[in-house]
Design a protein around this nucleic acid. Sequence first.
RNA 1: GGAGAGGUGGCUGAGUGGUCGAAAGCGGCAGAUUGCUAAUCUGUUGUACGGCAGGUAACUCCGUACCGAGGGUUCGAAUCCCUCCCUCUCCGCCA
Length: 439
Amino acid sequence: MLDLKQIRENPQLVLLRLNSRSVDRYDIEPILQLDRQQRELEKARSHLEARRNEIAKSIPKKIKDGGDPNSPEIQVLRDEGNQIKATLSELDPQEKDLKAKLAEVLLALPNLPSESTPIGKSEEDNVEVRRWGDEYIPQNPNILPHWEIGEKLGILNFERAVKVAQSRFVTLIGAGAALERALISFMLDRQTKAGYLEVIPPFLVNSQSLTATNQLPKFAEESFKCESDDLWLIPTAEVPVTNLYRDEVLEASQLPIHHCAYTPCFRREAGAYGRDTRGLIRLHQFNKIELVKLVHPSTSEEEHQSLVRDAEAILQALQLPYRVMELCTADLGFGAAKCYDLEVWLPSAGKYREISSCSNFGDFQARRGSIRFKEAGKKGTQFIHTLNGSGLAVGRTMAAILENYQQPDGSIAIPKVLRSYLGREVLTGATTYNKEMYS
RNA sequence: GGAGAGGUGGCUGAGUGGUCGAAAGCGGCAGAUUGCUAAUCUGUUGUACGGCAGGUAACUCCGUACCGAGGGUUCGAAUCCCUCCCUCUCCGCCA
């Protein structure tokens, strides 16, 4: 949520930066108007309330001083009180209505891109910041797509997952399941060592939480909702982990807070019909390690850089070629002020595919969720800054490994850092692997 | 799911219609005392919104709201009534 004061005091600047996002023309005039009306009503209301309080205090005083409770003088005060009550009961709904409308439009407004975000018109204008691991790009021209090699090895099964659930689901089998588990453990171990405190949050969250992290109200159709409860399946661990601190006032000395979390993620992928229909790239359920930071505003830029480095560290350790893209204003997510995507090389597609997205939200989410901090000795509170990024999406990492580590004989070499987790150097099939490992 | 108890300021906890933004204690902050620490004493101590009030500003002043949330009764609600949410205890069920 944007700062209403900022909109009020600097509407032109806000508009300029909002419009840098896309060809969309944002209109903030209605907000300014609602704000004016609301403040006018608030002023009128508080004046009336002041008079009401005055009356309420004077009545018992007069009675105490020997006045007759039924005297005309007191009756006049009672009547005035009743009149004020009547007026207030008319003003009240009006002001509530204005406030609700104001909240509605404010919640629907995206964050302002940071000053350093490159201006652009489409994802074409994203900027490649750096590229890593060209030497690990496989030269073998006959690499099978990960879903083909996965089914061939018997470690991925899509058909049965579709029977059990729906399209865009997968079942991992044997070595595939173990590899997924190894990746999760490896990623958590790496990020924990880097100082992120691991949490396992609820996988279902309420509407208020989704609103704070800006999935609601605008993107309700992206998440799965439980019909009979105010609960949603999490689309990302960002939601429960950030919301751990919702409605709290932290001590400045508690900052920064760094968390990592493994969770499954559930997304409806509405509007993605026909895109990435095969394989592990776009599923309704996938695993992800998420990094979440709550930081002092003065440090958020450097915290963002180190967050990206921490996500990159996983790809480097796995020796997967990737590049870092800085998103331009047009491609920036709704709540982000600044964002870097990590894209891993997928040989079957012959291109880089997003595997992590690291965003700095500034105080956008903190305002929505009222996450503040207090500086020792200082009056008042300030909003913290929130950041998060995938470290990494596990399914897409699996896909990258099945392709980049594919051997000419159809086996999959296991990245060095995973070997101790799996107890194997090569993956040749689902069941043979399990027999060898567990017999 | 059934029965009961309860939700008050950073924490503990008093308050059952006006003098309550709210006792007391703890904690925090400032000062005094003290060779240091500790102890003691004194003072202070929330948040949000609004203001055609003062200051460049930090801030000060004024008003209003906030005792789980929403609504009602009343001139006046932490206190009475209604609805909802949450927590705890016992029973049932269950991994």
